[in-house]
């Protein structure tokens, strides 16, 4: 066997990326995600079809306020993100295959970065693809909602993936932690009046939606708006971007230092 090692760190990272993408795509997470998306699609299709007791045609505002905002942004999006991101590293760890990544000659932060890129690409494909299908099912009314939601979905996905991959790097059973976080913090805390809701990703996603989604009447009115106390869309965008960068940097730092058993 030839002994000269002509290797490239970029090629090695690309292999980590391809491996992580393949393993995440052909996984239980994809089945769970497909089932959840299928259920949501079914609900949306039923809602969009005019019924005898509700024969009025549906509007973009109704689609946004009854389906996309509560069901998709509030529940499905974090679940899809956590199912892929939280299992990426902790899954390799529990299957005892992480050792093969940790003993390569790739610097650990780059291993993390390559896995992040793979998970992010897959998750964005699923979340944006899922959003597009959900918006197209009811017909033309969905196009206006899609125009409002896709940017927020993209930024929220990036932030969620960063956060849940950080959990994955930190703890063995990251899926449970992520699920608890998604249900307790993102779902419940975001509705608590005051400033405590500002620790959640969904607060900034909602704040952004309320401002850019004015034609869809997404923002609550009166006292409800005062209790929620949203920040401006620009502030929300900045926070989501900074949080995403922060989660990624923290994850790379943690992964590069942690001793995995």
């Amino acid at each position: 066997m030839e002994t000269a090692n002509k290797t490239s760190t970029v090629a090695a990272c690309a292999q980590v990326f391809r491996l992580a993408l393949r393993r995440q795509f052909f996984s239980r997470q994809t089945i769970v995600t497909a089932v959840l998306l299928g259920l949501t699609l079914g609900i949306t299709a039923l809602w969009a079809y005019p019924m005898p007791w509700n024969p009025d045609p549906r509007t973009s505002a109704q689609l946004a306020s009854r389906i996309l905002s509560p069901l998709y942004m509030g529940f499905l999006l974090p679940i899809i993100c956590l199912s892929y991101a939280s299992s990426a590293i902790s899954g390799e760890r529990s299957e005892q295959t992480l050792v093969y990544l940790l003993t390569t000659n790739i610097p650990r932060p780059l291993v993390y970065l390559a896995m992040y890129a793979a998970v992010l690409l897959l998750t964005l494909a699923v979340t944006l693809g899922g959003l597009a299908v959900l918006c197209l099912v009811p017909g033309k009314i969905g196009l206006e909602a899609l125009g409002v939601f896709w940017t927020v979905t993209t930024c929220a996905t990036v932030a969620y993936v960063g956060l849940f991959l950080l959990f994955s790097a930190g703890v063995r059973r990251a899926t449970f932690l992520s699920l608890a976080y998604a249900l307790m913090i993102e779902t419940l805390t975001v509705n608590i009046p005051g400033v405590v809701n500002r620790i959640t990703v969904s607060f900034y996603a909602k704040s952004w939606l309320y401002e850019t989604g004015k034609p869809l009447d997404l923002a609550p009115t009166g006292a409800a708006l005062g209790l929620f106390n949203p920040v401006s869309a620009a502030s929300a965008q900045w926070v989501l971007v900074l949080a995403s960068v922060g989660f990624l940097a923290l994850g790379m730092w943690l992964f590069s230092r942690k001793e995995y058993d």
Binding site: M1, N5, K6, A11, Q15, R18, L19, T104
Partner: peptide, 17 residues
């Protein structure tokens, strides 16, 4: 091949190894 790829070898070199 994947293991060779993780070591940073080109595809052709990975196949050979």
């Amino acid at each position: 091949r994947v293991t060779a790829g993780l070591r940073g070898f080109t595809r052709a070199e990975a196949r050979k190894r």
